[in-house]
Design a protein around this nucleic acid. Structure first.
Length: 233
DNA sequence: AACCAGGACGTGA
DNA sequence: TCACGTCATGGT
């Protein structure tokens, strides 16, 4: 069932090209919102440590914030040459706060970014464990999974507000289900493939932006799954 | 003028 | 464990 929904979304919206990177010139004209940095169908990113770190910074900046706003903050950081771990650490806190202001919560996020930068240097080119990520103040379950999935190509399914909204509306999950429950549902019923996980989450975001932005939800594309009720989960 | 955006943390029960 | 308040800018 989950694969069927994935295929429907993929056929409808096409490859999304996540995670967007400033240094990546590819665009995806079918996408809503910002067009910068996408690389549809190419899962070979990130290609170096700097791109890994940019993804980590991005996951924090986009917390409860639209990507468009997070991207403005990233561009500001890039302008002052502060997209490396060492630059974030040494950057004056007031400068950091003003650079990321468009992304909101700039006081918290400035602190979170410094934590993430110190953590990234401590990693010393190794991949982080999920528990290690969660121990960093500012990295919660969704951010940790986004980092593992998109920066480190680990098959960790990302559950966000959109995912909960779509699948509770389809009555595949309940609204009171917590993060690990929903995550296990996906990971237990899908091939453990990071490319699939990356694309699926990106497609869910795209679908939610288009059809679940505001009540009453527009369920013209997947609403029929809610009525059939013949899932085999 | 509310409401929402690719959440996480601190607190109190 | 968990519900709740807080954090903050910008688009619709």
């Amino acid at each position: 069932m989950l694969l069927k929904i994935y295929n429907t979304l993929l056929k409808t919206y096409g490859y999304q090209g996540w995670w967007p990177l400033l240094s990546c010139k590819g665009t995806n004209p079918t996408k809503t919102g910002s067009m910068r940095g996408y690389h549809p169908g190419d899962y070979s990113y990130p290609k170096n440590n700097l791109q890994k770190f940019e993804i980590i910074i991005g996951t924090i900046l986009t917390q409860n914030t639209s990507w468009q706003q997070a991207e403005k903050a990233l561009i500001n950081l890039n302008t002052i040459n502060a997209l490396s771990p060492s630059a974030i650490i040494s950057l004056d806190s007031r400068m950091l706060r003003s650079a990321i202001k468009p992304a909101g919560y700039f006081n918290q996020k400035a602190s979170y970014l410094k934590n993430a930068a110190r953590f990234f240097i401590l990693l010393d080119n190794k991949a982080p464990a999920r528990d290690e990520l969660l121990a960093v103040k500012g990295i919660g379950p969704e951010t940790a999974d986004s980092i593992l999935l998109y920066a480190y190509s680990q098959p960790e399914f990302v559950i966000d507000a959109y995912t909960k909204r779509i699948f509770s509306h389809l009555e595949i999950i309940k609204r009171e289900d917590n993060y690990p429950m929903i995550k296990q549902l996906f990971e237990n019923n899908l091939p453990k493939d990071y490319k699939l996980y990356q694309e699926y989450h990106a497609l869910l975001v795209e679908h939610a932006k288009r059809c679940y932005a505001r009540k009453p939800y527009d369920d013209k594309l997947l609403g029929r799954y809610a009525k059939k009720r013949n899932y085999e989960l």
